[in-house]
Design a protein around this nucleic acid. Structure first.
Lengths: 214, 214, 214, 214
DNA sequence: GATGAATGAGTATTCATTCAT
DNA sequence: GATGAATGAATACTCATTCAT
């Protein structure tokens, strides 16, 4: 007969950081940086408040770690897709968009994106990081995409300094949307309809009229 | 006999100083809700801290009042424009967009918009108000605009449940942008170029190919 | 009939700082800097914890204020005495010593002195202040005293770089004593005996005059 | 048959590492009791934090052990010196003083002394120990010294209840000095000059022998 | 024995809110 | 009405102590 005393705590050095980041991610996304209590993060992660400080120097560092750990994996995937795709640029665009949303929908990426917009001005260095590692890389991808289309004659001539932002806007808004005004959304939008109309109208604006006509 | 409709929110004083709301608006936009100190608001408005409480029940109520008071004026102007305009829908679209940005650029509307996205989940009733009074009315305007274009044969057939959001996204993003990642923007975007490309590509997606060709 | 409701608190802008400093002085002297809780200081002063922060920016600033406010008055008095005294230097010495102790005995000066020795290394800038404003001025007084005695032929030639410290030591120790090991003092020393023997031996030394003469 | 007196405090382990006490001594002296982190003590001693608790029940016990272990060796040496010395009492006094400082200067005794004055009121039982084992024994030594001088006719008649304290004061102050206001000492005192003047004036006093005689 | 991850009570500090003046 | 001194609940962070490994 084995006696199984419930230990007061467990040693989980390796698993801890991810558990803490996970709990923090969820709460930061839900309440924002300031309104998230470290007490609550600790409780959600099933540890004591002090344990947080074994792994992160401060609330701010925890926040930064959350952003860094969560954001990067997604961006790499898109970059690979762009590099490897063969076929018409229009299709590549549709693939990228679909893939983007699939990546975003099942983790907290969208919430994190909202969080960054909300807190960027309070954390300039984090904003810099996010800008350089996420926004900028994303824009570079879009530039490559547009250049590909323009070079092949599929797309019309476009202003590459502003089009990436314009093109990405409806996708970013979709992400923000689902974490801000979801609370009061009366007619929940069909994401599939949204994506379809977005891709259609975006391409309508991108494609050469010559081609669009055919 | 005058009809006196009960307003949605109650003016506690007839002479409620706009200075308080003005100071609060600026600081809320600059620092966010949580990081804004009432001390600072009072100082900026040139009153004592206690005075704030003569006019607003709490920090939250002050925030709500700021949003409510500041947001509405803008939306009316656009609605009037839409109702009165005569001429091609394409031109109406360009006028609306230009007007939107002009309205937004010289007051704190853009910052307030960012603030709403950041705080919506913490203030459900405010989110509801914002959704109903701003987002929804804005979407209704866009629906009217699109219907006008579709009815006249200028625009192709569009999904009116999602296109308003998609169409507005680049404008909303422009507003968010200028209050979030401005701190680290290395290549400041030309707003004029942005608006031009936005209108061109949006119309490219909206217009009938037949017309777009000509 | 007057109704006398007990007010939740009283406005005492002018009296507060002294009350706070008084309470803080007593507790700092009793427990040292680190072991003194601001909670307790506030309670002793009859205010809430927050009130402390209306008058002092931090625990450290409170500590500094306590030292500054309490120390200086005493030193001025001794300086005046030295400047005005007429008569033999030996008598001046006895007057200064007696006066010193009288100043010290009825307020918390002695405790503050102990405190400074204990905390000096933790508060370098405060140590500097104390050194310059208290120790140094005190030494200058002793130098004047000794010079006076040497010039008049009353005192023998003395090393003025070290004698002030040596001469003051028994007095300083007496102050420290009463605030450190008082807790375990089995045979309480008679201060009068102490002062008498101190003055006698300081003036005359240990040796028999017969022997000293030879 | 060996007599095994129960020691006043119990060694918990035969091999109780002196390294722990050494590291603790240094840090306690440097930062004071409260500001010394056990983390740091452990790191300096090259052990883990938990290990400290194998040897000492608590931070307080560690502190007490540090004081007890460090203090005693010094005092014995002086006692032996006093018992064995043959020659004039004046010379014995000079030998004792010189020896005292030599003992103190190269270990942390002086720092520990300062520490005791600072913390005595927080550790009454430690204060008692220090008082009985250090201060009292020291005073008894001085009493013997003075009696020796008085009996031999070298010293004049002195109040033995207070003179030991008075006589020791400049030495104690020298120890405190070097660990308190050293941080802001502008004109560093020469210890040799200090000791010389101390011994001279203690023995001879301030007054001219000519005048003292009369 | 030794380790160091985990704990959680404790404390300085902040700031929205109240209310005596 | 206006003020700003006073409040005290709330919270980030620390660190002596414990105990699973």
């Amino acid at each position: 007969m084995s006696f199984d005393p419930k230990p007061r705590w467990e040693r989980r050095k390796d698993a801890r950081p991810q558990e803490l980041l996970g709990a923090a991610l969820e709460l930061f996304v839900e309440h924002g940086f300031a309104a998230t209590r470290l007490d609550e993060v600790a409780r959600k992660a099933g540890v004591s408040k002090g344990t947080l400080y074994l792994y992160f120097e401060s609330k701010e560092e925890l926040f930064k770690a959350v952003v860094r750990e969560t954001i990067l994996p997604g961006i790499v995937q898109s970059e690979q897709l762009l590099a490897q795709f063969e076929g018409p640029t229009e299709e590549l665009f549709r693939v990228l968009v679909t893939n983007w949303w699939n990546m975003v929908v099942d983790n907290k990426l969208a919430g994190l994106c909202k969080l960054m917009f909300a807190e960027a001005s309070n954390f300039p260095d984090l904003a810099k990081f996010y800008h350089d590692e996420v926004i900028d890389r994303h824009e570079k991808m879009y530039i490559k995409l547009l250049e590909r289309g323009m070079n092949s004659g599929e797309f019309r001539q476009l202003d590459l300094t502003v089009m990436p932002k314009i093109l990405a806007a409806p996708m970013v808004m979709l992400m923000l949307w689902t974490h801000s005004f979801c609370v009061c959304e009366v007619r929940p939008t069909s994401v599939n309809d949204y994506l379809k109309s977005y891709m259609d109208s975006a391409l309508g604006g991108l494609l050469c009229t010559e081609r669009a006509r055919s």
